[in-house]
C-alpha cells in the first residue's frame, strides 16, 4: 500500500507547489538590464515574459481550452454522466 501511495504522490503534480512555489522563481527572473546605445539612449526592450503578465488584461474569465473538439463523439461521451440522464452510482437513486 505504501508503494501505491508513493507512486500516486509522484504522478500527481504538486499543485500547491505550482501555486505558491513559483512566485519565488519569477522574482528571480527580474533584473534584466537595459542595453545602452552610444552611452546616451537606452533600448527599451519590447515587453515580454513577466512584464507582459504584469501589465496584462485584468479579467477573471477562463478561456476555454481549444484542444477539445466538441464535435467528436468521444468528447460528448466523456461528460455523459454529469447529467441526470447518465449512469447513476449504485448507492444513489433518482
Amino acid at each position: 500500500a505504501a508503494e501505491v501511495f508513493l507512486r500516486q504522490q509522484r504522478a500527481a503534480p504538486n499543485l500547491r507547489k505550482l501555486v505558491y512555489g513559483t512566485v519565488v522563481e519569477e522574482e528571480e527572473e527580474e533584473g534584466e538590464e537595459d542595453e545602452e546605445v552610444g552611452g546616451l539612449f537606452r533600448v527599451s526592450r519590447p515587453e515580454k515574459g513577466k512584464r507582459r503578465r504584469a501589465d496584462g488584461l485584468d479579467c477573471s474569465r477562463f478561456e476555454p481550452d481549444d484542444s477539445h473538439d466538441w464535435e467528436q463523439e468521444e468528447m460528448l461521451a466523456s461528460i455523459r454522466d454529469c447529467f441526470v440522464t447518465g449512469k447513476w452510482e449504485g448507492n444513489t437513486d433518482a
Partner: peptide, 13 residues
Amino acid sequence: IEVKKPNEEEMKG
C-alpha cells in the same frame, strides 16, 4: 490543494 481524478468507468469530465 488536492487533485481528484475521476474514476475510470465514470464519465464525468
